[in-house]
């Protein structure tokens, strides 16, 4: 068990007045208060230390005991016996904050003063801090319901990601945040999804848009083409005389609708008619003949 120099913690001199202690405490509390330092374990620990230091130094009795036995706290029991003979039941004068995780008084404090400090009984429960995290997915990941493990504040959290989540969508996992101080409920975990774009499949809401090339002859004469969709291959019929940029809708072949089982958006296929760029002499002649018909 290590001796804690409470004067050092509050950055004050040993002969500081109660006012100085109060000022120093308030100054440091503003710096390390957990509400001003979200997700900062170090600040939380520091806040607990300054709370503990204030608990002792702002109470004349505890300060006296600490000053006398601080480095030699094993003999503090003798001090208690002496004090009991003098008077009992003095109230606390610390005026400390409600605090966060205030049950974490140091072993040194417990050894000298017992328990977790006089203020614990008056502390009210708080909901724990909410955590937030961002999860990057690609479009194919977002197409199916799947599980992923992510690390939030050093802890592994396994979550199920429903198919159809949207870019920027935020989901709340109740109770997956920080534990609630003073037996309060745990905070929540907010996860926002960052879905990267796919080079081929462009998502618009629940619909998917793609562009497919079709050669000039198939566009004019008609034919068939097998294309890739997000859930397999599909054979499409290209009617004769298909114009460039003609768009075809395939109902129910788009993206799954979030939390609606077996419901999907549509797939839009835009035909890009590919014109030949290098014609041989015979082809050129045939095109010329065609143009004269």
């Amino acid at each position: 068990m290590e001796y804690i120099d409470y004067y050092k913690v509050l950055e004050i001199k040993k002969d500081s007045s109660t006012d100085d202690i109060k000022k120093a405490y308030r100054k440091l509390a503003r710096k390390y208060h957990p509400d001003l330092n979200p997700n900062n374990e170090e600040a939380n620990k520091k806040f607990q230390q300054i709370n503990e230091a204030n608990e002792v130094l702002s109470d004349p009795e505890k300060r006296k005991k600490y000053d006398r036995y601080g480095k030699d706290w094993q003999h503090a029991d003798q001090f208690d016996a002496q004090q009991q003979r003098q008077s009992q039941g003095r109230g606390r004068s610390g005026g400390g904050f409600s605090g966060f995780g205030g049950d974490d008084f140091s072993d040194f404090f417990s050894s000298m003063f017992g328990g977790g400090g006089s203020r614990s009984s008056s502390r009210s429960p708080f909901k724990g801090q909410d955590y937030s995290s961002e999860l990057s997915l690609n479009l194919i990941d977002a197409y199916t319901t799947h599980k992923q493990t992510l690390t939030v504040n050093g802890k592994q959290v396994r979550i199920t990601i429903p198919a159809g989540v949207e870019n920027g969508q935020k989901i709340k996992l109740t109770g997956y945040g920080a534990p609630g101080p003073n037996n309060g409920p745990a905070g929540d975990l907010y996860i926002s999804f960052n879905i990267s774009e796919h080079p081929k499949f462009k998502r618009k809401g629940n619909d998917i848009h793609i562009q497919e090339e079709v050669d000039l002859y198939t566009a004019i004469l008609g034919g068939e083409k097998i294309i890739e969709t997000l859930n397999g291959k599909v054979k499409l019929t290209i009617p004769p005389g298909t114009q460039p940029d003609t768009t075809l809708r395939l109902k129910g072949k788009g993206f799954p609708i979030y939390k609606k089982e077996n419901l999907f958006g549509d797939l839009y296929v835009k035909w890009q008619v590919k014109l030949p760029t290098k014609l041989n002499t015979q082809q050129k002649e045939l095109f010329e003949q065609l143009s004269k018909l």
Partner: peptide, 10 residues
């Protein structure tokens, strides 16, 4: 903090 978490996940 979210940006850092996102970059760490990435």
């Amino acid at each position: 903090q979210n940006k850092i978490a996102s970059l760490k996940n990435e």
